[in-house]
Computed example of a mutant assay.
Amino acid sequence: MENEIVTMTPEERKEFEAFLAEKRRKEAVEREAAERETYKTLVDESIEACFPSLKSTSEQLSDGKKLCYNTFAQVVDMKADVYGIKDGQKSHTFTHRNGKMRITLGNYETDNYDDTVNVGIEKVKEYLKSLAKDDESKLLVGGVLKLLSRDQKGNLKASRVLQLRKMAEQSGNDQFIDGVRIIEDAYRPAISKTYVKAEYKNEQNEWIAIPLGMTEA
Results as ranks from 00 to 15, higher is better:
S46I: 04
V29C: 00
K157F: 06
K86F: 03
R36E: 12
K166F: 08
S91Y: 06
P189N: 02
E136R: 04
N98E: 05
W207G: 05
I5D: 02
F94N: 04
I5E: 09
E12A: 15
C50S: 10
K197L: 03
E45A: 15
K146H: 08
E30L: 14
D115A: 13
T7W: 06
Y127M: 01
C50P: 01
E48K: 15
V117Y: 00
E109W: 10
K65G: 08
K197M: 07
L54P: 01
Q89L: 11
D174R: 12
T7Q: 12
Q89Y: 14
M167I: 12
G120H: 09
N155Q: 13
R188N: 05
E12F: 02
F72N: 02
V75I: 02
A217G: 11
E48Q: 14
S159A: 06
L54V: 09
N98G: 12
R97T: 13
L164A: 09
L54R: 03
E37V: 01
T215E: 13
D185R: 15
G64D: 00
A21L: 11
K23R: 15
E59C: 07
A18V: 04
A34S: 11
T104C: 08
Y127E: 02
S137F: 04
E122I: 10
N118G: 05
E184I: 11
L148V: 00
N70C: 06
T95H: 07
E169H: 01
I191P: 01
E32L: 11
N205R: 13
K201F: 05
K86V: 02
Y39M: 04
E12K: 10
K125N: 02
G179W: 00
K201A: 01
A73F: 08
A198Y: 14
A217Y: 12
S53P: 00
L145H: 03
D81F: 02
R13E: 07
K40N: 13
Q204L: 06
F94C: 07
S62H: 09
Q170E: 07
I5N: 09
Y113D: 05
T215W: 04
E45F: 01
M1C: 11
G106M: 01
V124I: 14
S56W: 00
R36A: 05
N118S: 14
Y113P: 03
K55E: 12
F72E: 03
D63P: 03
E37Q: 13
E35Y: 05
E22I: 06
V119T: 10
L212T: 12
Q74R: 10
T93C: 14
E2W: 00
M167N: 09
G84P: 08
M167G: 12
T116N: 06
N205E: 14
E17N: 11
D174G: 02
P10I: 07
D87T: 12
I183F: 06
T41F: 01
Q152T: 13
A186F: 06
E126P: 01
I182K: 09
L147G: 03
K23E: 14
N112H: 11
K65L: 07
V124S: 08
D151K: 10
N155P: 02
Q74W: 10
L140V: 09
A132C: 03
E11N: 04
A80E: 14
T9C: 03
K146G: 05
D63I: 09
R36L: 11
K90D: 12
E30R: 14
K40R: 15
V141M: 00
K153M: 08
D174L: 07
E48R: 15
E37D: 07
D134T: 14
T93V: 07
E15D: 14
